Simulated assay, not measured.
Amino acid sequence: MPKGSPELTNARKEEIISACKTLYKDMSFKDITIMKIAESTSFSRASIYNYFETKEEIFLAILQKEYELWVDDLNEISNRHESMTKDEIADALAASLEKRALLLKLMSMNLYDMEENSREERLVEFKVAYGRSLKAVDNLLQKFCPDMDDTARREFLYSFFPFIYGIYPYTVVTEKQKAAMDQANVGYTYYSIHDLAYICAKKLLEG
């Protein structure tokens, strides 16, 4: 890591992360390289390696930020309400995930590569943010669902979180995929991120 103020280091990291995030809007994960990211920043490819060893570490940093933003949203839900019905909780969880399409995309499509090709310290930083999201949802359940004991809350968490890993592929389907499903007589019924998250959360909360 080059010498410099923490502010400068963070600013350069943010520039790299922002450039990668922008590229990911129009390019696939496999086609994005450190060189392409560097071309979208104010410094060289060699300079990027001072902050991230692999492109996967950059993507992991994006995912970490998405989790941090989700935690902020979850905490805001808890702080904004004195009481909530289970239907309102399900709707609020669904709405919070609807804002985090990038989180869902990265989780469902690229998580293994990001974790496998990142240094352990970077992975720990990410897992801290992930752990905070588990805690934030658990806090919502403790506050608004007093009928749920520790076991019930744990079962909700370890059903809902694995479920959301698969939301993105079911809600973002290309015309090619739709045509293939039609030809295979599978058919396609559109559900939004909110639709699927709400249905799952409500069923789990209702037991």
Rank of each mutant, 00 (worst) to 15 (best):
S18P: 06
D73A: 11
E116H: 14
Y191V: 02
S40W: 07
Q64E: 14
L104V: 00
Q64K: 12
A136F: 05
L141V: 05
Y158W: 05
G207E: 03
A90I: 06
D26I: 04
M181N: 12
D147K: 13
E14L: 09
T22A: 15
D26F: 09
K178I: 15
S28A: 09
L8N: 15
S159W: 01
V172C: 02
T174Q: 10
S118Q: 13
A92H: 07
I34F: 08
A46N: 14
T22Q: 07
S83R: 10
F43P: 13
F161A: 01
D87M: 04
A92I: 13
K202D: 05
F126V: 14
A101G: 07
D138F: 12
Y112Q: 15
N75I: 00
K143P: 15
I17D: 12
E57H: 03
N139E: 14
S133W: 00
S192A: 13
R153I: 06
M114H: 05
A129Q: 03
G207R: 09
I167Q: 01
E68S: 13
K65T: 03
Y24V: 03
L60A: 11
I77L: 09
C200V: 04
A101M: 00
E76T: 14
E120G: 00
C145P: 11
I199F: 08
D150E: 15
L8H: 14
K30A: 14
